[in-house]
């Protein structure tokens, strides 16, 4: 029975990978995430060089990693799309018809479905994050040479973990909202225009422990927040946020009518 369940889970994850990678919107997230950070390294090269020369950077070792905090947008899109694609109307002829019906007919055990989806998403984003991190660090080294300290492997691994956790965070929020457009808009504005948790840190230092701000401490050293947070603490706090939100989203998804 145990191995039967495992075989079943493997096929469910396989099916979810097929579903996710069969969508063009998912590829937008995939490609955007892969390219954004390495391209930004090139675009910002002269500005970075000047900043280092003038001593404007807090911690020079951060320069290799900073752009990964923007490229993570691609992982967010994947986290949203993996859920929102289930709720998108399938056609104008039949209002209310969604892919979710087919999904639940094929996989009626909802907790298994959510685990399979989360696993498929984590796998895709882990590969994406790993490739992007390596590419970004290599290009940074190539562009700036010894101007920037050599990156530590631990920080690179933490950056990949940050990507996976952000994707899962987007997954949980979209599952709660049952709508991709709202979630995506909020997440994009939050990560590109103005970070709400970051603004809140001006009001209360506790805001530094909100998921996206705290998570960045895993791989960045000079973040302007009023509290010092160690990388391991940051990783644990962000994981707890993600686990908590996923648990609430899963409980609601289990209870609601499809």
């Amino acid at each position: 029975m145990v191995s039967g369940g495992r075989v079943q889970m493997v096929s469910l994850v396989h099916a979810e990978l097929r579903k996710l990678l069969g969508l063009r919107t998912a590829w937008v997230g995939l490609v955007l995430g892969l390219l954004a950070a390495p391209v930004l390294v090139g675009l910002n090269a002269s500005a970075t060089r000047r900043a280092v020369a003038e001593g404007l950077t807090g911690d020079a070792s951060d320069l290799a990693f900073q752009n990964l905090g923007i490229g993570v947008l691609g992982a967010m899109i994947l986290g949203v799309v993996v859920v929102s694609s289930e709720f998108t109307p399938t056609g104008d002829d039949v209002p209310g018809a969604r892919q979710l019906t087919a999904t639940l007919l094929a996989t009626p055990r909802r907790e298994r479905l959510l685990i399979a989806k989360g696993t498929a998403l984590s796998l895709v984003v882990a590969v994406q994050g790993l490739l992007t991190t390596v590419a970004t660090l290599v290009i940074t080294r190539w562009v700036h040479g010894s101007l920037i300290p050599a990156p530590q492997p631990g920080r690179a691994a933490a950056a990949v973990l940050y990507w996976v956790l952000i994707a899962l965070l987007a997954y949980a929020i979209t599952l709660l909202a049952r709508n991709g457009i709202v979630t995506l808009t909020v997440l994009i504005v939050n990560s590109t225009v103005v970070s709400l948790p970051y603004l809140l840190t001006k009001v209360t230092p506790w805001a530094a422990y909100l998921p996206d701000v705290v998570g960045a401490h895993m791989f960045l050293r000079s973040i302007e927040v009023p509290v010092e947070i160690a990388p391991v603490t940051a990783g644990l706090v962000m994981s707890a946020w993600v686990a908590g939100l996923l648990a609430v989203a899963a409980a609601l998804f289990n209870r609601r009518d499809a």
């Binding site: 097929r18 002829d93 018809a97 019906t101």
Partner: peptide
Amino acid sequence: GALLDGSGAHRARSARAHLRWMATSNR
């Protein structure tokens, strides 16, 4: 085998791709 409203296929997916993931999920 259940037939409800609509096809259940995401509008951007081909008929074949839709049936393939369904087949995969149930081995």
